[in-house]
């Protein structure tokens, strides 16, 4: 599974359903490819001993659906119901869809769910890990920092948070809306094990995650530097593409740029 494969599905489905949130989904494509392709341990979607994953930035659900399909947990037929009527594949993920551990959509809640999952694993003497993927804009939410405090205090070594640090949020650039710069010292001050990584370098991401001590010590955060809209030149770092759907010509150009036409 690669990020480019996820991008292709994201573009195809966003075009077919005429839905936005494309830039956010492209931003996390490589992170999800690493998680679903190499990191998350699970025999099947209902495996009780599977690692848990929370897409706390639920608006990137299309990239998650793409990863689920590439993992073999979601059929192409089901995927084609994305954004339609009477579908579990909405713009934000629903837990009733096999492969989705928790429904999300309201920002600042998913890390608490993952912390509960991590705490449960420890209490049950299980090696399960819990992952949460948050956006940088989501770090505006005070509730997220409640959990950041809690997880460090409880030494939830099996909790791994990935921050999609693309520098953008719905209505502007994060440094202009509500600055979180510098991000790393904030997490360090709360007692987390902090790793600054390139969120588009799949091999480096996988290697970093493999080095984490998930049995003892503090919880882990990967501050993943990403480019909003990564792979499609006219979307990259453009606020418009938080919500905007593509035209036919924009779609053709996007496919060409991610190499889907070659």
């Amino acid at each position: 599974m690669t990020g480019q494969q996820i991008r292709r599905i994201v573009l195809e489905q966003a075009m077919r359903a005429h839905v936005g949130h494309i830039g956010s989904a492209l931003s996390v494509a490589d992170l999800l490819a690493v998680l679903y392709g190499r990191v998350l341990r699970a025999e099947h979607p209902a495996d009780p001993e599977r690692d848990r994953f929370v897409l706390s930035k639920g608006h990137a659900a299309l990239a998650l659906y793409a990863a689920l399909q590439l993992r073999g947990w979601l059929s192409a037929e089901e995927l084609n119901r994305y954004g339609g009527d009477h579908t579990l594949l909405g713009v934000h993920p629903e837990w009733q869809l096999p492969g989705v551990d928790f429904a999300t959509g309201s920002l600042g809640q998913g890390v608490a769910l993952a912390a509960g999952a991590a705490l449960a694993a420890r209490l049950q003497h299980s090696p399960r890990r819990a992952f949460a993927l948050v956006s940088d804009g989501e770090c505006n939410e005070g509730s997220l920092w409640e959990t950041v405090m809690f997880a460090a205090h409880q030494k939830l070594a099996n909790l791994i948070v990935l921050v999609d640090l693309n520098g953008q949020q719905a209505f502007g650039y994060t440094d202009e809306v509500l600055s979180l710069t510098p991000m790393a010292p904030r997490w360090q001050a709360f007692g987390w094990d902090v790793h600054e990584v390139d969120g588009h370098h799949e091999q480096a991401l996988a290697e970093t995650i493999a080095t984490l001590d998930t049995r003892t010590g503090p919880p882990h955060v990967l501050l993943a530097r990403t480019v909003f809209g990564k792979g499609v030149s006219y979307m990259e770092s453009q606020i418009k593409w938080h919500y905007w759907p593509m035209s036919e010509s924009e779609y053709a150009q996007a496919l060409a740029e991610i190499g889907a036409l070659s």
């Binding site: 848990r52 551990d101 928790f102 809640q109 890390v111 608490a112 769910l113 993952a114 912390a115 509960g116 999952a117 991590a118 705490l119 449960a120 209490l123 819990a130 509730s143 959990t147 809690f150």
Partner: peptide
């Protein structure tokens, strides 16, 4: 939120 994860 933590209680939700525990209950799950």
């Amino acid at each position: 939120g933590v209680a939700t994860g525990l209950a799950d």
